[in-house]
Design a protein around this nucleic acid. Structure first.
Lengths: 176, 176
DNA sequence: TCACGCATGTAATCCGTTACATGATTCC
DNA sequence: GGAATCATGTAACGGATTACATGCGTGA
């Protein structure tokens, strides 16, 4: 059900088309919730049926019409109720750890290579996060409340990726 | 597809019934891959069709028969091939972060409560991990290769949960 | 006697992924 | 001329979740 909430969360900040949403789910929000454009389009029609979003069709010259969705009062009320419910921890699903669990099946060097490959990916994401931190949240004291909440989600990603790098190094050391 | 690999990983260590597997996916392996008993039973029949597991029916008195599955040579070969492929980063899906992203919709105290509730859950899991670390991996230098790999997956969980606690505290402070 | 553990499954529904499909405009 | 961007969708398939279903044994 959380895809609906993720979409409503984006629409809380500003009205969007399905296409705009898909792009957001490929950056910012996508850092903690991902969804393909097909999922988004399907979910938007459901949200419209439930009157949680409003739709305004914008005719454009030379490009396809745009369906601009905005959150309704009912949608915002639903979000308020949902936010205050306690959240269970999200289930972990990490195939690298399955591989490590039976790492003895292959030569150690293969596992070392996997760890390095994984480390590089985490490093890349961390670099992206750091760039965003510098560019948009340079002075955390001066942020609006909205921006501060968004900054906290970014900080979560930074903690997460930093932890991964530390673990990759520890694991790599302990195998050599 | 990784559920099949997760099951084969467990069976690499020892032969199990569907029921045994379900229990493992509720502890050890479940720390990084979760699956319900329905998924497991369905997947086991598929794995048998593909000759990746063997089945031995064990008749028991006074309890239901047990179907004991073990990995075949083909299954082990498949795992070896799979392990060395590079792994993409698993997609993140965390509804707490969606909530924080639009935290301004509710009073700050509600968000503080969410953070505390989340923190408590992460602390509990970390405590579980620490107990396992003490009981099974007290002397990391002396571990067999199998055990060392399993220990690394546990260390990953410890890094992960420690990071979460740090972030919860940082977030909580920054809001007060 | 009632709940829990052992042990297995089916059915319905929903969610996610992949592939296919269209069509104009802008930039290289 | 060809690729990328804007903008929307359908169809098929497979994976995951939830609910339903059975039945014996053991211990409180």
């Amino acid at each position: 059900m959380a895809l609906a909430h993720a979409i409503l969360a984006v629409l809380t900040n500003r009205a969007c088309s399905g296409y705009d949403l898909a792009k957001q789910f490929d950056g910012s929000v996508g850092f903690f919730w991902n969804a393909s454009h097909q999922q988004i389009y399907r979910e938007l029609t459901k949200l419209e049926d439930r009157r949680l979003v409003d739709l305004e069709v914008i005719c454009q010259v030379g490009r396809p019409d745009k369906k601009l969705y905005s959150i309704t009062d009912a949608g915002e009320a639903l979000m308020r109720e949902w936010i205050v419910q306690p959240s269970p921890l999200p289930p972990v699903k990490d195939e690298l750890l399955i591989k490590l669990f039976v790492g003895q099946l292959v030569p150690k060097s293969e596992i070392q290579a996997l760890l390095q490959q994984q480390r590089a990916q985490h490093e890349e994401i961390l670099a992206t996060y750091r760039t965003i931190e510098r560019e948009y949240f340079g002075n955390p004291e001066a942020l609006s409340l909205e921006a501060r909440y968004q900054y906290l989600t970014l900080r979560n990603g930074i903690h997460f990726e930093t932890g991964w790098l530390a673990w990759c190094d520890e694991a790599s050391d302990s195998l050599s």
